[in-house]
């Protein structure tokens, strides 16, 4: 069962931060705060580019190895879209607080150290991008992310978009992919056993979700849209969210 809920987002939810966003999709709810560019600590100072600091806070307890790993993955992919060369010796801080994650009815939800939860990555990534846009941090491009699982069920192979915890449990492989708004692959993390052909299928599925441009009005496109109904149209979602934010900001124009 895929959580087929449409993604939802609210920008500027935290008045004190430079930029913030709350995003919920596929059972996950994440709030992000972005501050920057601000003065970096001496040890983080880089004379040529800004230091991007990502902090992931789990819904309960304090972060551990798992969160550190998520942080390092997010940090390296976000550094690619932020114009870090514009702000040498400074710091761009992104704090991601997980508020809600879907419960797994089948297995014990006790957190296992070192067990990476891939399904949460797209939510974290998308929230970070929305918060960066809300803060007006100069960026090269925007980006969208999705998670895809390859599940074998009764001997039939299926690719599942935005898998539930149960599906991740039984999946043979789980993949997280992110694309920039220039259709470039930004992030590709995989876990489990898979062959190149499967990965290619996953890539195509993810690309369709992340890079499918806004729907046009002619009949041809409509037919294609129905085909692509397998997942949400992330790019269109991002654009409409930002358009409403800009329209609200520039109400006086």
């Amino acid at each position: 069962m895929t959580a087929t809920s449409e993604p939802e987002a609210a920008l500027g939810v935290l008045p004190r931060a430079d930029g913030s966003a709350k995003y919920s999709h596929a059972g996950y709810t994440v709030t992000a705060a972005v501050n920057g560019p601000i003065e970096a600590q001496r040890k983080d100072e880089n004379p040529y580019e800004a230091h991007v600091d990502v902090i992931v806070r789990p819904a309960a307890g304090v972060g551990g190895t798992r969160e550190r790993h998520l942080e390092s993955i997010l940090q390296s992919s976000l550094s690619h879209i932020i114009l870090i060369k514009n702000f040498p010796r400074s710091l761009i801080q992104i704090v991601l607080q997980v508020e809600d994650s879907p419960e797994n009815d089948y297995v014990n939800t006790k957190l296992v150290q070192g067990n990476l939860n891939f399904a949460i990555m797209p939510a974290l990534f998308q929230t970070a991008v929305l918060a960066l846009l809300s803060a007006g941090v100069p960026m090269r491009a925007t980006a969208t992310a999705t998670a895809v699982a390859v599940v074998f069920h009764d001997g039939v192979k299926r690719t599942v978009v935005d898998p539930s915890p149960r599906e991740i449990e039984i999946a043979r492989s789980v993949h997280v992919l992110a694309f920039t708004s220039h259709d470039e692959l930004l992030l590709a993390e995989s876990e489990g056993d898979f062959i190149v052909k499967e990965w290619d299928e996953v890539y195509e599925t993810a690309k369709k979700i992340c890079c499918h441009s806004a729907p046009a009005d002619d009949g041809m496109q409509m037919a294609l849209d129905e085909e692509a109904a397998a997942g949400p149209d992330m790019r269109h979602f991002l654009r409409s969210t930002m358009e409403s934010k800009v329209a609200a900001d520039l109400y006086w124009k």
Binding site: M139, R140, T142, D249
Partner: peptide, 19 residues
């Protein structure tokens, strides 16, 4: 580099993003 409205002033040959 930011999200906003593109404003152009052809007489002054200038453009910027209002945000």
């Amino acid at each position: 580099t930011v999200s906003g409205q593109l404003i152009t002033l052809p007489q002054k040959s200038s453009m910027w993003i209002e945000y």
